[in-house]
Amino acid sequence: MSENWVLKEDEAVELLALLITSARIQLDEPAHYGPLRLLTATERLSGMIRERSSDKSRAFLQENIERVPEMRMAMSDVESYTAALDERCRAVAACLLRHSAQAEGES
């Protein structure tokens, strides 16, 4: 595990604002906008923490999350949209494993 502080209080509140307002507007919007909002939050969080995060996450953030805006607008191509999200899921799992390996090394 990394004990790094990567998020400032202002940034955390900004992210909360995005999440809460997304939850509300989703009630009035098509279901497929849900993933779009979560991806927007992912992208904002990534932008906030990228500079301060360790090598273990930075590569993941740079290679996977920086390209999220391109895919955001491609929801109508369900197959490649799903494939792109699956690719991110595999990448985040690998990132989790890197962090977990560090924890094991420390204990």
């Binding site: 607008m73 929801m75 109508s76």
Partner: peptide
């Protein structure tokens, strides 16, 4: 700037 939201069809 990108090309915008892709058309459904």
């Amino acid at each position: 700037a990108g090309a915008g939201m892709r058309a459904w069809k």
